[in-house]
Amino acid sequence: MEKFKKRFSLLSAIIQAWFDKPETVGYPFLPLVLPEGFRGAIVIDPDKCTGCGLCVRDCPAGGLRLEKKSRDEFKLMHHPASCAYCGQCERSCLRGAISHSNALVAATTDARELVVVLKEKQG
């Protein structure tokens, strides 16, 4: 009997699957639930950022760029298409200014979205 049951275990598995809810997520028609710690879009706290450039130095993918004239005049930019979403900038930042949110970054057809100005400070 046990052997018989095992022989038809795939059959019982598909019958079980028939009664279960389908596991597929109806994305993009239904919302996508991402866990809290998911490494998504880069966000910055402009008050904390001093434009030191540590994040740019450690970025392995070249996804961040800093144009710096002086301490008070710099522009920090992020290229979402180059970014590897590895979280290194978040680790490198000493002041906790730059971090990942858990928002998924979708592909884009709009060229203006390829550069995101994170912080621009003019003297």
Binding site: E23, L34, P35, E36, R39
Partner: peptide, 29 residues
Amino acid sequence: DTIFMHAWHDRELVLDIMESISGGRVSHA
């Protein structure tokens, strides 16, 4: 194909763990 789908469904459980603890399904960093 049925075992394929079922095995990959089970694999999702592992990927869910990895995603929620490290923040990435495949590149965990």
